[in-house]
Design a protein around this nucleic acid. Structure first.
Length: 562
RNA sequence: UGACCCAUAGUGUAAUGGUAACACUACGGUUUUUGGUACCGUCAUUCUAGGUUCGAGUCCUAGUGGGUCAACCA
């Protein structure tokens, strides 16, 4: 756990913690706390899942409890081992360890089948041979009660026989279903005799071809919680209406009484988490894949250079409650910058190079200057940079006719080259089009960084790269994927209309100090005055590629806009 | 024209019947060899109307507003 996580101790309790503390106080389950994270292996984990993972694992940990990882794999046509593996990888990356081995709802199919027969024998479930259309018709509407299926009064013996034949594979998909017999007039639509088993002659990623009938979510989830002796089953708000059903099965089956609690899922501005829409971005080639650094997936954020502890801190700071919420990106970015600031190795990279000649620096001379790896942390050490007569500076750092409060280089102005000398601009060269091609300066030898006795005071300090050792770079500059905070919140418009065409800008002009040749793939970097970056796996020995994680805060740019 | 859930600064989260707090954002300032970092300051009488109480953001009632529910998905 990071320093930053520890320094933000939260004393106030969320509603789930209060429930748990109440349960512990009353001696429920002997004070045991056992939770679970139950993803369906049908896609990649995203920022919304991170919140659910955080709630379950952190809360259990806080009360000395355990958290299971259970793959809720009751629908064979949607699921795949590829997703199982990526989900495990992402949870570990986030920094969590589940209790024992990963579990699968599909491993409980025999038990769930037995529960179903039990319900049939108790006269609480029946085989309905109606078509899906007929069933929908008889379901009613929220304001109009449903009507009973003509098969609702089938006797247990017949139901059992049909159910066994279903299991034996004697019927085609869709021929019939098993329904719980509850109340066709219930105000809660889910209590109007929900389907609990359906026929699917499909290959399952875990059970293969062993089964051709599969339980529905409602007949699997609560029971699986119960089988695992889960004490607190936390899920998002949209499952609220399922709770009465969850409790009904627990009661009628007489099994361990797990309890379900619902929290509001976390929404983040400018991000989408709908699997369908994320897939569309991938399919239409608007992003490079599920791990594109702009994606809200954990794999995308990892590649972007977000630290797992930053995501954890974000989850902690956004809280747990039952109201709809839209978190601002500014909070996430502020946390990411804060964490990266502590650990990122500093380097100098010029993104838009302009040649600068130091006219009074001896031709052919090259000196080595030390550069701190991290001013926040002396133990991070330092590395060497070369300095010579010709260096690269940022084009935006020189102006012929600067505005007020411009602290950078301009004719006759002084400025410090970070870690090197103070220079003063003397003249500049232009091409026919009027573009500045070169700036000529003089330097003050006695102003050397660390031993400055020049007495010159400067307002600005600039980054630079030496021409004798600088290396070319590819920079991938990422921005938010959408130009609207809620791209899916406009009924009239498709979310793709809000796609940010500038969400990726590739820069192939950048020149970096040679030290970057030595950095590893997971090493967070700060390109001074430019932002935080991370080396991308697309890098080759000839061409290093870096992803921009987040820009620096830039109060000058903000001032300029006004 | 049903049921259920929700309502506190721009955003998000606290305040457990007793002085509305914290973070982010925004704005202003100090420090600084990153216009970064760090630090200081400014910004709400809690959706509305009644009620209970010595006292209500908190409890009750009624409105208003938002969300969710009619897959052989999870």
């Amino acid at each position: 756990m990071s320093q930053n996580e520890n320094k933000e101790v939260k004393e106030s309790k969320n509603f789930i913690q209060e429930i748990i503390e109440g349960d512990i106080a009353s001696g429920k389950h002997e004070g045991r706390v056992h939770m679970r994270f139950p993803p369906e292996p049908n896609g990649y984990l995203h920022i919304g899942h991170a919140k659910a993972i955080w709630i379950n694992f952190e809360t259990a940990k806080q009360y000395g409890g355990k958290t299971n990882l259970r793959f809720d794999d009751t629908n064979p046509v949607k699921e795949d081992v590829e997703y199982v593996n990526s989900i495990k990888k992402d949870i570990k990356w986030l920094g969590y360890e589940w209790e024992g081995e990963a579990l699968y709802t599909s491993n409980y199919f025999p038990q769930l089948y037995a529960y179903a027969e039990d319900l049939i024998n108790k006269g609480l479930a029946y085989i309905d041979s109606s078509s899906p259309e007929e069933m929908a018709e008889m379901k009613g509407t929220p304001t109009k009660p449903g009507t009973a299926s003509p098969f609702r009064d089938r006797q247990p013996e017949e139901n059992l026989e049909l159910f066994r034949k279903m299991k034996a594979g004697e019927f085609p998909d869709g021929a019939m279903v098993l329904r719980a017999k509850i109340d066709m007039a219930a105000p809660n639509m889910l209590m109007r005799d929900p389907v609990i088993y359906r026929i699917k002659h499909a290959h399952h990623h875990n059970t293969g071809d062993e089964w051709c009938i599969y339980p529905m979510y409602d007949f699997a989830h609560g029971q699986s919680d119960s089988i695992e002796n889960i004490t607190h089953s936390c899920c998002s708000l949209e499952f609220m209406h399922h709770r009465p059903l969850y409790d009904w099965f627990v009661e009628k089956l007489g099994i361990f009484p797990s309890k379900q609690y619902e929290f509001a899922r976390m929404n983040v501005a400018y991000m989408i988490t709908s699997k369908r829409r994320l897939l569309k971005l991938v399919e239409e080639g608007l992003v490079s894949g599920w791990d594109d650094p702009r994606m809200s997936t954990l794999s995308g954020m990892r590649r972007r250079g977000y630290l797992p502890q930053s995501i954890r801190r974000f989850c902690a700071q956004t809280g747990v409650q039952k109201r709809d919420n839209l978190q601002e990106m500014e909070l996430l970015e502020s946390i990411i910058r804060d964490d990266l600031n502590q650990v990122a190795t500093r380097a100098m990279v010029v993104m838009d190079p302009l040649k600068l000649v130091i006219t009074n620096y001896p031709e052919g001379q090259v000196e080595n200057l030390p550069s701190k790896n991290n001013p926040q942390d002396d133990s991070a050490g330092e590395h060497m940079m070369t300095f010579s007569r010709e260096i690269w500076i940022e084009r935006g750092d020189f102006m012929i006719d600067p505005p007020k409060k411009y602290f950078r280089l301009a004719p006759d102005k002084h400025v410090r080259l970070k870690g090197a000398y103070i220079i003063q601009a003397e003249k500049y060269l232009q091409d026919e089009a009027g573009n500045i091609t070169e700036v000529h300066c003089k330097y003050f030898p006695e102003s050397k960084s660390g031993s400055d006795n020049s007495g010159i005071k400067v307002k600005g300090t600039m980054h630079w790269v030496d021409s004798t050792s600088g290396i070319p770079l590819e920079l991938r500059l990422y921005d938010r994927l959408f130009v609207d905070p809620t791209p899916t919140g406009h009924e009239e418009k498709d979310f793709l209309e809000f796609f940010n065409k500038e969400s990726l800008v590739v820069n192939n002009e950048a020149i970096a100090e040679a030290h970057l040749k030595e950095v590893g793939e997971a090493e967070p970097l700060q390109f001074m005055r430019k932002g935080y970056f991370i080396k991308d796996a697309d890098s080759t020995p000839d061409k290093l590629v870096f992803n921009r994680t987040v820009t620096m805060r830039d109060s000058w740019a903000k001032m300029q806009k006004k």
